[in-house]
């Protein structure tokens, strides 16, 4: 071997990573070559010094910051869970309101109107006409539907209140709550005005 060992060969030789033939050739050369012997000694000095390099310890504030981040992350996950368990029922209730409103929307007015008409009927003397189906049955059905409608709104309102107690800033629940409250008030007003 006429040439000097390459840097990589010296390091590999030091770690015993060379194949036996290459290791033998390198060993022969290093034994005869003061330049490579010195280079090998330098690589060895670096390799042997490295494990003794200082192990740095992070300052206390790092542990404090980790704990704080984990704590706030935990809070966020709890809030998300609450949002799920409270928000989903609230939204379901809101959907129920919307569905009921859609279902009872125009017909509901007629139904309430029917109650009123029925209530007035005896006074105006039209009760004797006895339309089919029986007006009293229609009135009962209308009142039942009306009450069910209002109960649906009330359930939605209650769910919204619970959700808002947990998370007052939930804009979607606030919107549902506000809409449901308005719907309830309108229904009550309509029933009161029509019923007089």
């Amino acid at each position: 071997m006429d040439q000097h060992c390459s840097e990589e060969v010296l390091s590999a030789y030091l770690d015993g990573d060379l194949e036996s033939e290459a290791a033998g050739t390198a060993a022969e050369h290093i034994a005869e070559c003061p330049v490579c012997r010195q280079a090998l000694a330098q690589v060895r000095a670096i390799r042997d010094a490295a494990p003794a390099m200082e192990q740095f310890v992070p300052p206390e504030r790092v542990w404090g910051a980790i704990r704080e981040r984990l704590r706030s992350s935990h809070k966020r996950s709890i809030n998300l869970a609450r949002l799920f368990w409270v928000g989903v029922p609230a939204l379901a209730a809101a959907l129920l309101v919307v569905t009921l409103a859609g279902w009872l929307g125009q017909p509901a007015q007629d139904t309430v109107g029917a109650v009123v008409r029925v209530g007035r009927a005896p006074a105006s003397g039209t009760a004797s006409v006895s339309p089919e189906p029986d007006e009293t049955e229609v009135a009962d059905e209308a009142v039942r539907e009306y009450r069910e409608y209002v109960r649906g709104i009330d359930r939605a309102i209650d769910e919204c209140r619970i959700a808002l107690a947990e998370n007052p800033g939930n804009a979607r629940v606030l919107a549902v709550y506000s809409g449901a409250s308005i719907d309830r008030q309108r229904a009550m007003d309509r029933f009161a005005s029509e019923g007089q």
């Binding site: 840097e7 990589e8 060969v9 010296l10 590999a12 770690d15 990573d17 690589v43 390799r47």
Partner: peptide, 13 residues
């Protein structure tokens, strides 16, 4: 291994 040997070579230089 290759990268380690090159790293040591760099340091030695």
């Amino acid at each position: 291994k290759s990268q380690l040997h090159r790293a040591r070579a760099f340091l030695r230089r």
